[in-house]
Amino acid sequence: MILCSGESLIDMVPEDGTFRPLAGGAVYNTAIALGRLGAPTAYLWPISHDPFGEMLLNPLIEAGVNTDLCPRSERLTTLALVTLTKGEARYSFYDEGSAGRMLSPDDIPPLPKEIEAIFAGGISLVPDPCGAAVEALIERNHTRLPVMVDPNIRPFFITDAGAYRARLNRILPQADIVKLSSDDLEWLYPDLDTEDAARKVLELGPQIVLQTGGASGARAFWSGETVSAPAIRTTVADTIGAGDTFNAGVLASLRDQGVLGKDAIEGITGEQIHAALTLGAQAAAITVSRPGANPPWAHEMPVG
């Protein structure tokens, strides 16, 4: 079972001059996508008792995601006001004192034996106490469980860049797989081109660094020759949840291929990485073809 830990929130998406509330959040989207793809998945993040909390809980249940590790909270749900420019999503967050924001390291339980991998990241890495909680989850478990991290960097959400960089410098060496967009890499290493920046992250200690670039597809940097997979051509409704769904496709593929284990990742082949990138791209293409973060179900995926 893959454990996803990170923010869930309500995306307030523009629609006919108003805003429509949709369940979202980077790590939440990945959990939903994993469940819909048929991968055994669990989620760890506080869910409010407010009406928006119920909006978040129901899709998890529908996707078969285990929510036993989700504490229920009387605090409010985080809101993200979404604006779209040529299909690209931009966000304003209403997060102070929210249910997720106040998760602390003391709230992180011992993980059940069914957990076989951890996925974490998103804006939940930025503020405290929740950033410290996610860091504690990784620190306590990375020696025995494979960890994938996608920081999904939102510069406008970062109030203390130095503290955030310090956290990433602690977390990324503990990860086995790191996914970064071209924008993420530019923020991390503004003086380097994309490939050099990705290799700089690889030097920190991960086995694999995945770099995504929207229409330009995805690349994997690892100990072997760089692996590339093209983006899937489709009509784009918007890009909400695209990278999150890509992450789910990669993890689901690695699990199906039997190479998601801590030792197995060390022996991974270029062909196995390519298969994972391809499934991630296929899943992301379906997500961007329809409004909002609406990842595909297994029956919607290409066969073969």
Results as ranks from 00 to 15, higher is better:
Ile2Ser: 05
Ser8His: 08
Val13Gly: 01
Arg20Tyr: 10
Pro21Lys: 02
Tyr28Arg: 07
Ala31His: 05
Ala33Pro: 07
Leu34Ile: 00
Leu34Arg: 06
Thr41Arg: 09
Trp45Arg: 10
Trp45Met: 12
Ser48Glu: 11
His49Phe: 15
Pro51Phe: 11
Phe52Thr: 02
Leu60Asn: 03
Ile61Phe: 07
Gly64Phe: 00
Asn66Gln: 12
Asp68Gln: 12
Pro71Ile: 14
Pro71Asp: 11
Ser73Tyr: 02
Thr78Pro: 02
Ala80Val: 12
Ala80His: 08
Val82Arg: 01
Arg90Pro: 03
Ala99Glu: 12
Ala99Gln: 06
Gly100Leu: 00
Asp107Asn: 11
Leu111Thr: 03
Ile115Tyr: 08
Ile115Arg: 12
Glu116Asp: 10
Ile118Lys: 12
Ile118His: 11
Ile118Gln: 12
Gly122Ser: 15
Ala132Cys: 06
Ala133Tyr: 03
Ala133Cys: 03
Glu135Cys: 10
Glu139Phe: 15
Pro155Cys: 05
Phe156His: 07
Phe157Asn: 06
Ala161Tyr: 04
Ala163His: 04
Tyr164Met: 06
Tyr164Leu: 08
Ala166Ser: 09
Leu172Arg: 02
Pro173Arg: 06
Asp176Gly: 08
Val178Phe: 05
Ser181Ile: 05
Asp183Ala: 11
Glu186Val: 12
Tyr189Phe: 15
Asp191Val: 08
Leu192Asn: 04
Thr194Ile: 13
Gly214Met: 06
Ala220Leu: 01
Ala220His: 04
Phe221Ser: 11
Ser223Ile: 14
Gly224Glu: 07
Val227Glu: 14
Pro230Cys: 01
Ala231Thr: 11
Val236Asp: 00
Gly243Thr: 06
Thr245His: 09
Asn247Glu: 05
Ala252Glu: 10
Ser253Ala: 10
Ala264Val: 02
Gln272Met: 14
Ile273Gln: 08
Ala275Trp: 05
Gln282Gly: 06
Ile286Arg: 01
Ser289Arg: 02
Arg290Lys: 14
Pro295Ala: 00
